[in-house]
Nucleic acid binder design. Structure first.
Lengths: 223, 223
DNA sequence: CCAGAATGCGAGCGGACGCTCGCGTTTGTC
DNA sequence: GACAAACGCGAGCGTCCGCTCGCATTCTGG
């Protein structure tokens, strides 16, 4: 069964011109701006269209409804996020310090969230509709699994329940730190990043029993 | 100038019957339920009235608008909160352990938030209108000042900027832990409370330089 | 017991917002 | 150049929701 017009109704039911792709990118960028400043529910499709400099009708030429805009935006962010956290959490190099590992992971995640503030806005609102929440949960679960995997190499004698709880704590602590980091700029922002790293390192350090890294007493005070 | 009908227009412009006070309490309770399950913006006044078993008109007999409901609810929570955190953060007893001080404060705050889940719902939504955000900010600032005061006795040689940053971190960490605590029940919830305490103690311990409490190496592992 | 105030009701107003529809314009294809 | 399809527009439809209004019922002071 080759690609007839009927059976691919869900994939690309419509042939896009280059202009259309540009409009889509433009609309997604505008949506990101509006979502960032007002949140998902409070953002009106008319406002998004206005921000993009097009009419409401044009917006609905490319998106079936408001939710689809957030879905598509979320999808694209997810892909970038997967790349980023792939880089951020992949190396389980046992020769590195806990401090260095945490520092690298935090730096990558923070830079991603600073580059895409809409990610935080979309994932933080309690008002997001079903589909986005599902995707968020999916990413959340994947992230937790990855963190658990990393932690298991640091804490081989922890029970699965403890491991899961510790992973949840790490992610929650990161989110809390992220909020503070995004709320400041320049030197103060850098200071909060360092504090976040301190929190994570000091939280995890006593759990390792001196297994990871050579220097144990190196993260005492912020220089 | 005694209380004529004109000059007290903003205080009690209307004499309430006992029935009215009951209705108000009933409506606030219903509002708390609805706010908890759907958030502020998504909550409709008709839904609140329905939850309370009264008509929309009756609701507007006692509240001028939707915002006023949240304001009043917020005000009552604020008062209870002030009492609670007054108890929770008041004793700066220098003879107690850092661990004990953190543990006591966390326990009191957690129990307050568990008793009034709507507090978390109202304070966490990014959709809250002006007045509530103001009150939230006011409480936030007061809390931070209180935490800073406590920290200054623990870290006498820290700069004001460091003190403020540390206080912000502590509050952020607490919020993160609270979210996890509220998301679990029973033994798992208790475990998260303990983890939250561990995070705070381990974060603050290295900063004290061994000033508070007798035992320094007592909070290593969760029993 | 009665006048007036407080309480209670629910249909419905006004406006905002998601989304549609008809029609004109641009672009790709032969 | 001609035809179809994709693009673009903006007035406006349907709906939902905060809130009002007129009227009935219950309470309270004198």
């Amino acid at each position: 069964m080759p690609d007839t017009a009927e059976n691919q109704a869900k994939e690309q039911p419509r042939r896009r011109q280059a202009r259309g792709e540009r409009r889509i990118a433009q609309l997604l960028e505008a949506a990101a701006t509006v979502f960032c400043s007002t949140g998902y529910t409070a953002a009106s499709t008319n406002a998004i269209a206005r921000e993009a400099g097009v009419s409401p009708g044009t917006l609905y030429q490319f998106f079936p409804n408001k939710e689809a805009i957030a879905i598509e935006l979320g999808d694209r962010l997810m892909h970038e996020m997967r790349d980023t956290y792939g880089e951020a959490l992949a190396p389980i190099d046992p020769s590195t310090t806990l401090e260095a590992a945490v520092g690298a992971a935090v730096d990558r995640f923070i830079s991603f969230n600073c580059d895409h503030p809409v990610f935080f806005a979309l994932m933080h609102g309690p008002d997001i509709p079903g589909r986005i929440a599902e995707e968020h949960d999916a990413l959340h679960v994947t992230l937790l699994a990855r963190i658990e995997e990393l932690l298991s190499s640091l804490l081989p004698d922890a029970s699965p329940a403890d491991l899961s709880r510790t992973a949840h704590m790490c992610l929650g602590l990161y989110k809390a730190g992220l909020e503070l980091v995004l709320g400041h700029e320049g030197a103060e922002q850098e200071a909060y990043i360092q504090e976040l790293k301190n929190v994570l390192v000091r939280y995890l350090e006593p759990l390792t029993g001196g297994r990871a890294g050579r220097e144990e007493a190196s993260s005492r005070r912020t220089p």
